[in-house]
Simulated assay, not measured.
Amino acid sequence: MDKKVALVTGGSSGIGEVAARQLKDAGFTVYAAARRADRMAALEQAGIRTLSLDVTDDASARAAVERIITDEGRIDVLVNNAGYGSYGSLEEAPLAEAQAQLDVNVLGLARLTQLVVPHMRTQKSGTIINISSMGGRFATPLGAWYNASKYAVEGLSDALRLELAQFGIDVVVIQAGGTRSEWGAIAAGKLRATSGHGPYRVQAEAMSKTLSASSEPGYRLASPPEVVGRAIVKAATARKPRTRYSVGIGATPLIWLSRTLPDRTFDSLIKRFAGVRA
Rank of each mutant, 00 (worst) to 15 (best):
A231S: 15
G218Y: 08
L162Q: 15
T210L: 01
S149G: 09
K240I: 11
G196V: 11
G198A: 12
E17M: 14
G16R: 04
V202R: 07
S268T: 13
E72D: 11
V104S: 03
S212A: 15
R192F: 07
A176D: 11
I75V: 13
V247P: 02
G184V: 11
L191S: 05
R121S: 01
V104R: 00
L156R: 00
G248P: 07
E92V: 10
A251V: 12
G27H: 00
A152H: 04
S13Y: 04
V65K: 00
L102F: 15
R67L: 09
T210G: 12
K234F: 06
S181E: 08
K4G: 00
G178T: 10
Q101P: 07
P94L: 10
G14W: 08
G177L: 11
I174R: 00
G177D: 08
T122A: 13
P262A: 04
G178W: 03
R161Q: 09
A33I: 07
A139I: 10
A6G: 06
D58Q: 13
G275C: 08
T113A: 12
F266I: 06
R180V: 14
F167G: 01
P225H: 08
V55R: 01
R264G: 02
V106G: 01
L269A: 06
E154S: 07
R161K: 09
S246V: 11
D2C: 01
S181R: 06
G83Q: 10
M1V: 10
A20P: 09
R121P: 02
D58Y: 11
V276H: 04
T50H: 04
V173L: 15
L51V: 06
L221T: 06
S258K: 09
I131Y: 05
E72W: 03
F273Y: 15
T70P: 00
L164E: 02
S86I: 14
G16P: 09
L95N: 04
A193E: 15
L78N: 01
V233L: 00
R230Q: 15
A20L: 06
N105R: 02
I169G: 01
R36C: 08
V18N: 02
T243F: 14
A61I: 02
L269D: 04
G14P: 10
I128A: 02
A110D: 05
I249K: 13
S89W: 10
V104F: 03
V5M: 02
A42H: 13
